[in-house]
Simulated assay, not measured.
Amino acid sequence: MSVTEKDPDILARTLWGEARVKGSSGQVAVALAIRNRVFDGNNNSWWGEGYGDVCHEPYQFTCWNKTEPNYQFLIGVKQIPSRELAQCRIAVDQVIDGKVSDPTGGATHYDVSEAVRSRSIRWHAAQPV
């Protein structure tokens, strides 16, 4: 699968929206879950085609919901702090370039409900459709 010119930016913005409080390892892990959707062996085409499509697929990532407070940052109306976005871009480059192993075990879902306090992410493997 080829990576489009826009994919790295969309993925970085998704990481900022979904995992900016998780630090670099959490951001890499979320990016890996997205990558696992892109390369899903179950051929679940409803994930979308490529990183950008997977990130923008309705109801997949709440940060892209138009009613989400951070949506204005993701679409560029408001500016994401440059250091935070740069950290997300590092995670994106590591994942897209295959420079990190997958600690999620191939998970395509994650739960950050304990987000700020625990800094942990729980992983869920893909469920057959």
Rank of each mutant, 00 (worst) to 15 (best):
Val92Arg: 02
Lys99Ala: 15
Asp7Tyr: 11
Trp64Ile: 07
Val129Pro: 14
Ile90Asn: 08
Ala31Phe: 00
Val112Asn: 15
Tyr71Gln: 05
Ile96Trp: 13
Thr62Glu: 15
Ala125Leu: 15
Asp9Gln: 12
Ser118Arg: 14
Arg83Cys: 00
Val21Tyr: 05
Ser120Ile: 07
Lys22Ile: 00
Gln72Tyr: 05
Ala125Met: 12
Lys78Gly: 02
Pro58Glu: 09
Arg35Gly: 01
Gly105Cys: 08
Thr104Asp: 10
Pro58Leu: 12
Gln72Asp: 09
Gly26Leu: 02
Leu11Gly: 03
Val129Ala: 14
Tyr51Phe: 15
Ile10Phe: 08
His124Met: 14
Gly105Tyr: 05
Gly17Leu: 04
Tyr110Asp: 06
Ile10Asp: 05
Trp64His: 01
Glu49Trp: 08
Gly48Lys: 02
Asn65Leu: 08
Leu11Lys: 01
Cys63Asp: 02
Gln87His: 00
Asn43Ser: 13
Arg119Tyr: 12
Thr104Gly: 08
Ile75Asp: 01
Asn42Tyr: 15
Asn42Cys: 09
Gln60Ala: 13
Pro103Ser: 07
Ala29Leu: 10
Cys55Asp: 01
Pro103Leu: 04
Asp7Asn: 03
Gly105Met: 09
Val38Ile: 01
Thr14Trp: 07
Asp97Lys: 15
Gly52Ile: 00
Thr67Arg: 15
Gly76Met: 12
Gln72Ser: 11
Leu11Gln: 05
Ser24Ala: 04
Ala31Met: 00
Arg35Phe: 00
Cys55Gly: 09
Gly17Phe: 02
Lys99Asp: 13
Asp93Leu: 03
Leu74Val: 01
His109Tyr: 15
Asn44Cys: 06
Gln87Asp: 07
Gln127Ile: 14
Ile90Asp: 12
His56Ser: 04
Trp46Ala: 15
Leu11Asp: 01
Asn42Ser: 14
Asn44Met: 11
Pro58Ile: 09
Ser118Met: 14
Asn44Tyr: 10
Leu11Tyr: 01
Phe39His: 13
Ile96Ser: 07
Ala31Thr: 02
Phe73Lys: 12
Gly41Phe: 03
Val92Gln: 03
Gly17Thr: 03
His124Thr: 10
Cys88Gly: 03
Trp16Lys: 08
Ser25Cys: 01
